[in-house]
């Protein structure tokens, strides 16, 4: 690793000055749990680090009338212990609990996990099913909001331009009671990079599915919603036959790669397994 500069601003004003001065050369760092391995592999070679892990405005979890706001520098360990998130977004908490191990969770941040944009990101599938939006600070200091559904563009490429920073993750509060589940399968039972993962949120009316949101990791170049399978569940009564046929359809909805973690065939097989597991987990929450 070569010579680098490092700054740790205390607030967004200091951040702004640094971005203005170094904009084109800036790499944001918080926990560094993805960035440092990438630097070792020479995939990334930052010139200027701006450490955002102590900027107040990026650190709180706030519940407002219609929305939950999570600061992008919130650690994964803080996500798992947040009363607000346990109450309002248990699927996100479940995914955070399964991310990495306790050591990575003590440093990794939710903003970092999203911006790193691994197709196997653990926080992305739940956030996709929660219809989350990202508040993004551009290089001039102006702020825009973008739906996470439009954020992942292609393999590890997001809508973030050079010098742009996710500052908050916004999750709309739902008045209807929903049930859901996040499951992942990896090659070890901790610090596992998902071979396949699945987030599912169901809007149920005793046995009848009003709406379903399903998002997957490890099945496409990006974390992705399974829009076709969602339609199969929508406005239907959930029974064994529907679960079976939907599992089959979902396994065919994407074209996953074969790599050292799993072949295409294995990933498709896992998809069907995880779908049945997820839907049964979710329905159990309802007391179905």
């Amino acid at each position: 690793m070569n010579h680098k500069e490092y700054f740790k601003p205390n607030n967004t004003q200091e951040l702004g000055q640094l971005v203005k001065e170094f904009g084109s050369k800036v790499t944001f760092i918080a926990g560094g749990t993805d960035l440092i391995p990438q630097m070792r592999d020479e995939v990334k070679s930052p010139e200027v680090f701006i450490d955002i892990s102590e900027i107040d405005e990026l650190l709180s979890i706030v519940e407002e009338d219609d929305v939950i706001s999570i600061g992008a520098a919130t650690k994964i360990s803080e996500v798992t212990s947040s009363f607000i998130l346990i109450t309002h977004c248990p699927i996100l908490v479940s995914a955070a609990e399964q991310l990495g191990n306790i050591l990575t969770r003590n440093r990794a941040t939710i903003g970092g996990n999203i911006a790193n944009a691994s197709p196997c990101s653990d926080t992305a599938p739940p956030l996709l099913t929660l219809n989350a939006s990202l508040v993004i600070r551009d290089i001039k200091g102006e702020v825009k909001t973008q739906s996470i559904n439009d954020f992942f563009l292609s393999y590890k490429k997001t809508a973030l331009q050079q010098g742009e920073l996710i500052t908050q993750i916004l999750i709309p509060k739902k008045s209807e009671k929903q049930c859901g589940s996040f499951v992942k399968i990896g090659q070890r039972n901790s610090a596992a990079i998902s071979v396949v993962s699945m987030a599912m949120m169901l809007d149920m009316d005793s046995g009848h599915c009003r709406q379903a949101k399903i998002a997957m990791g490890g099945m496409a170049p990006i974390p992705i919603r399974a829009l076709k399978t969602e339609q199969l569940l929508k406005n239907n009564t959930i029974n064994e036959a529907l679960i079976e046929s939907s599992a089959h359809h979902l396994a065919q909805e994407f074209l996953p790669i074969s790599d050292i973690r799993g072949s295409e065939e294995y990933r498709r097989h896992l998809t069907a397994v995880l779908f049945k597991r997820s839907i049964n987990n979710s329905l159990k929450q309802q007391g179905e």
């Binding site: 760092i29 560094g32 440092i36 391995p37 450490d51 990575t104 003590n106």
Partner: peptide, 20 residues
């Protein structure tokens, strides 16, 4: 593994300057 402010973290992925 080392403890930083009581919390276990990975020493191999932590920049020393970030734990000043």
């Amino acid at each position: 593994t080392v403890l930083v402010n009581g919390q276990p973290v990975l020493g191999c992925l932590t920049l020393a300057v970030s734990v000043d």
